[in-house]
Design a binder for these strands. Structure first.
Lengths: 218, 218
DNA sequence: TACAACTCGTACACCGATGATCGAGTTCCG
DNA sequence: CGGAACTCGATCATCGGTGTACGAGTTGTA
């Protein structure tokens, strides 16, 4: 009777309850787990649908070893996304959101931009592998923060109220992603991106004070 | 010695020179070709990476028949995109672009929106299959039109000049795509979309009346 | 009407990715 | 130090998609 050899411990550990991190793993196993997660992010960034083999190569280890940590490709992608999002939370939670909504928005966008640029490929990959509900669930916190800020801006008369917050939110996402794409394509310098994004979003979201609209319909 | 049976005639007909359309095809073959193209669009819309089998099923015909018209999956996707783009050209070329740039832009966006909504999935699929250069080449005409309009708007002082036209163009694309995505997700009514798009883009692109540009180079 | 064009189904070879298994080597950790 | 945990490479079965081949049936067109 031979005992199971491969498969460390952690993987996703049941998960059910709270975020019970890796229980009793050996130190180097944890290190490898981290390396796999990092490799996943970069591999996916290079090629949106990289295989587990590609990822393993990127991490500099055997394909089976990766399977030892994550039973399926889907769980691997999810873990990588979760990791990336958690890391992002650490940054975003430090951004002060009080004071002028416009200024706060600007700060939040500047910080978010970097994160979006890093993990959007991962997110795209995850969208193919995971149910949409799970994706939304993971974004909940970051999205809630931005939504709350936009809402406050509306209440204080700084942001326009003739458009629903959901659309402002979508626009924000979309413009940031567009900037990321332009950077990736080499058509935009990464350092200029935050300014380009602000330059679009701030006037677009500004409360219509003295009707600076161009065409003016209705 | 049996003669080749399958494979109609047309496919892409050498192509080299001009756009020599289907030469001597039987009437029903042409009809089927059109059906395949349409099915490709709808199938891809349902599932971004639908197989040739899926497409054939959508068209209500055998998989081999599809291969009879298009030798490879890539050529099928390309043909579908070309067809979709040509159809779009017919619409877009009818939009009057003279007069106030803001108004013209609004008209162009409204017309483009529908087309984007219809063929963006196809475009996404094509991006995975075709070289980026080919994609750009196919968009050349539509993109050129929009670019020229934006440029005129800048020259006439209606659109801001502190951002490059390329970025305005990207923003336009991205916002329209975002709207399409929201519609697909059921979070936005298709009829409202054009207004939502304008509402964002027009103030975002408007010339900064009080010239307080922040970055302002050169 | 008769031929050629076209369609259809089945079947096959090929490829790449997934996920499991085994056996042996290596490394951590008590 | 010694056993357990972990890594590694090779191998295998499986699955799904692509593209090809054949043979027979069906339909447009001269």
């Amino acid at each position: 009777m031979t005992v199971k050899k491969t498969t460390p411990r952690g993987t996703t550990t049941g998960a059910s309850g709270g975020g019970g991190r890796a229980a009793n793993q050996r130190a180097d196993a944890q290190r490898n787990r981290a390396r796999i997660l990092a490799a996943t992010a970069t591999a996916i960034r290079k090629n949106p649908d990289a295989s587990v083999g590609d990822i393993a190569a990127e991490a500099g280890m055997g394909r089976v070893t990766v399977y030892g940590h994550f039973p399926t490709r889907a769980e691997l992608i999810e873990a990588a996304l979760v990791d990336s999002l958690e890391r992002g939370e650490d940054v975003l939670s430090g951004v002060p959101l009080d004071g002028d909504p416009g200024e706060a928005f600007r700060r939040l966008v500047a910080s978010s931009w970097v994160l979006v640029d890093q993990s959007r490929a991962l997110l795209a990959a995850a969208m193919k592998e995971l149910p949409a509900a799970r994706i939304r669930e993971l974004h909940e916190k970051a999205e809630g923060r931005m939504r709350a800020l936009l809402l406050r801006g509306q209440r204080e008369g700084v942001f326009r109220v003739d458009l629903p917050v959901s659309w402002l939110l979508t626009t924000t996402h979309v413009v940031m992603n567009g900037a990321a794409e332009e950077v990736r394509a080499g058509r935009l310098d990464a350092d200029d991106a935050p300014w380009f994004i602000e330059a679009i979003l701030l006037p677009a979201f500004a409360a219509t004070t003295s009707t600076t609209t161009i065409g003016e319909g209705a």
